[in-house]
Design a protein around this nucleic acid. Structure first.
Lengths: 203, 203, 203, 203
DNA sequence: AATGAATGAGCGTTCATTCAT
DNA sequence: TATGAATGAACGCTCATTCAT
C-alpha cells in the first residue's frame, strides 16, 4: 500500500509538475528534463511512469479534463430545471477556470499548440463539454421550455463563446475577475434561445 | 524591375508553399527544407527572403489575416445599416473560411500550435476581427437599434462562437457546407442582442 | 538445500531465458528486462545472480560451450583410432548444432556480435575446439597414419570450414538437414590430409 | 566539379574515418560523434552524407567488399586455367587482408558484431566470395580437371577455412605474416579435391 | 540572388545498474 | 532473496541557422 501510495504520489507529482511547466513554456518548448527537475525526479523516472512525452501530456489532458468534467457534472446534478442546469454548468466551468488558471491555459491554449497528434483528444474533450450543454437544451426542448432548435450546434456555439472569453481573459487579464462575466454570458446566450422576455423571468 | 518581380514572385511562392506545408504538418513539425522544396527553392533561398522560420510564419499570419480582414471590410462597406453590416461581416468570414480551408486551419489551428511566441500576434488578430463586430454593435447602439450593452465583450463572444463552429467543421467535416451554418449563427447571435421579435423583422 | 536448489533453478532459468532472448534479438539489442521477463524474475533478480549483463552473457557462453565441448569429448572417448576420433568429433559438433539451433546461433553469430569484450572468450572457445581436432591429427601423425603437417593450422582450417557451413545453414536454412553435410565435410577435409585413396579405405 | 570533388572527398573522409573508428571500437560502441571527430566534421555533417549510422556502416561494408571483390576478380582475370584461377583468388584475398588489416577486421569481425540488421548484407557478401570460388570449381569440373562434386558446398567450406585462418591471425597476430599461410591453405584445400598426386603435378 | 554543404546545440528515448523495502 | 522504482549517462537523430561559392 505504501508502495502504491508513493508510486501514486510520484505519478501525481509528475502530472502536477507537467501542468506547471507545460503551461509555462508550451508543450514543444518543454524538455522532459524540465519536468523531471520540477518534480524532483530524474528523466528516467518520468519514463518509468509514462512511456513518452506525448503520453504524459495526453494523460495530463485526460485527467485534467475529466476532473473538470466531473466538477461540472456535479454542479449540474443539483438542478432539476434543464435551463438552470445549463446555467449551473456554465458557472462551474467559469469558476473552475477562474480558480485554476493553469488548467485553463492547459486545456485552451497549450493543448492546441501541442501538435497534430493531440487534435483528436482535444476535439473529443470539447465535444464532451459541448454535449453536456446540448443535453440540457434537449431536455429544455422536450419540456417545452424553448422552441425546437439544433441543440448540438447551439451548444457548440455557446461553448465556443465561453472559450473565447476565457481565452481573452487568460491572455490579457481582462476582466480582472472572470467570474464577473458569468451573468453577461448567461444573458447573451440564453436570450438567443428563449427570447429576451423569458430570460428576465428566469433571473 | 524583372528582378523585383521575380523576387516578389519568389517571396509569394514561399508564402504559398508555407501555407500549404504548415497547415499540413504543423509549424513545429515543418522543417524549413520542406518549405524550400515545396516552393522550388533552396533552404538558403528561404533565408534570403525571411530572416527566420518564425518571421516567415509571422509574415504568413499577417498577410493572410490582413487579406481576410480586407475581404470582410469590403463586404461591410456596402451596408449602411449597422446590424446588416455585422451580418455581412459574419457571412464574409464564414464564406472565406469555407472557400479557403487552408486559411482557416492556419489561423484557427496552426497559429495556436506554433508556440508562445505567436500568442501576441494571434490575440491581436482575433481582437481586430472582434473589434470589427464591436464597432457595428456600437453604431447599432448609437442608432438606437439595440439596447446599450458591453459591445466589446459581446463581440468577442460572438467571434468565439463562430470560431468554434468553424473549428468543428475543420476537424470533423461537419456540416458538409460550412456556409449552411450562417443563418443559424446569425439568428443565434442576433437574437441574443435584439430579442426574437426584432430579428424576424430584420431578415 | 531447497533454497540452494531453488536458487540453482533460478540461475538455470535465467541462463535458459538468456539463451533464447539473446539469440532472438542479439546481445546489444536485448535489455535485461527482457531476460527478467522471460525467466519470470525481476531485473533485480538477474543482478542477484549475475553481477552484470556482460557476466551473464559470458556465463552463458562458457556453460554452453563447455557443455558442447563435453559432448564432443564424450563422442571422441569411444574411438581409439585418431582419425576416426576426429571424425567422431566432427559428427558430434554437427549433430549438436543441428539439434540445438539456438546454441549454434549463440556461439557462431551472437557471440561475435556482442562486442569487443567477448572476443577473447570467443577466440579461446574456438581454439579449444580446434585444438581438439589438432590433437587427433597429432596422434595420427605420431601413429604414422598421415604425413607430418602443421596440425594446429590444419585443425583451424577444418574448424573454420565447419563453422561456415553451419553459419550458412543457420542463415539460409540450407541444407534442410545439417547432418547431411557430415559425409561431404568429412571427405572434403580428410582427403586433404591422407589423400583420396586412404579415405576410401577408412570409410 | 570542385564542389563534387569536395563533396566526394568529404564522403570519402567519412568512410575512411568510419573504417578506422568502427574497427577500433566496434559498431555498437562507436558514437557518431567519434566518426565526426575522426573525419574533422560535425555530427550533422555525417547525417548530411548518410541518412543513419546503419546506412553509413552498410555503405562502408558495401564499398569495402566491392573493392575487395574487384581486386580478386582482377587477379582471376589473368588466369585461363580454372584451378589456377581459384588459386589466384585465394592469394588475392589473403594478400588484401594482410595489407589492409582494418578491412579484414571490418568484414570478418565487426560486420558480424553490428547486429541483426546486417546479417543479410554480410551473408550476401560471403556468398559472393564463395560463389567466385564455386565458379572456378564448376569450370574445373567441366574441363575434367576434377571429379564432379557439390561445388557450392565445397566453395563455402574453403571460404570458411580461409576466413577462420584470417580471423585467427587478426586476433592473435599469428602467424606474423598472413601471406605465409597461402601455400599451406592452397595445398590443404586443393588436395581435398584432386587428390594428392594431381596437386603435385599442378604446382 | 541563390545554393546546399556544414554546423552544433538540443532533445527524446533507452537501459545498465543501484538500492530501499 | 527478490522486487521494481529510480537514476543518469549516453546516443541517435533533427533542424534552424550560417556561409563560402
Amino acid at each position: 500500500m505504501s508502495i502504491q501510495e508513493r508510486s501514486k504520489s510520484r505519478r501525481q507529482r509528475l502530472l502536477d509538475a507537467a501542468l506547471t511547466v507545460f503551461t509555462e513554456q508550451g508543450y514543444n518548448a518543454t524538455p522532459i528534463d524540465d519536468i523531471a527537475r520540477a518534480s524532483d525526479t530524474s528523466k528516467g523516472g518520468v519514463y518509468f511512469h509514462f512511456p513518452s512525452k506525448q503520453a504524459l501530456f495526453l494523460a495530463l489532458l485526460d485527467e485534467s479534463s475529466a476532473a473538470l468534467l466531473e466538477k461540472v457534472e456535479a454542479a449540474m446534478a443539483h438542478e432539476p430545471d434543464p435551463l438552470l442546469r445549463g446555467e449551473a454548468a456554465l458557472r462551474a466551468v467559469i469558476t473552475s477556470f477562474a480558480e485554476h488558471r493553469l488548467l485553463a491555459r492547459l486545456l485552451l491554449v497549450e493543448a492546441a499548440g501541442a501538435g497534430r497528434d493531440f487534435n483528436r483528444a482535444l476535439t473529443d474533450m470539447h465535444e464532451r463539454f459541448a454535449m453536456l450543454i446540448a443535453s440540457c437544451l434537449d431536455e429544455a426542448v422536450a419540456a417545452g421550455q424553448i422552441a425546437p432548435l439544433d441543440t448540438r450546434f447551439t451548444a457548440r456555439a455557446w461553448y465556443g463563446a465561453v472559450n473565447h472569453i476565457v481565452l481573452h481573459w487568460l491572455q490579457t487579464g481582462e476582466p480582472k475577475h472572470l467570474e464577473a462575466t458569468f451573468p453577461l454570458l448567461r444573458d447573451l446566450l440564453l436570450v438567443g434561445v428563449v427570447g429576451r422576455e423569458k430570460v428576465q423571468e428566469c433571473s
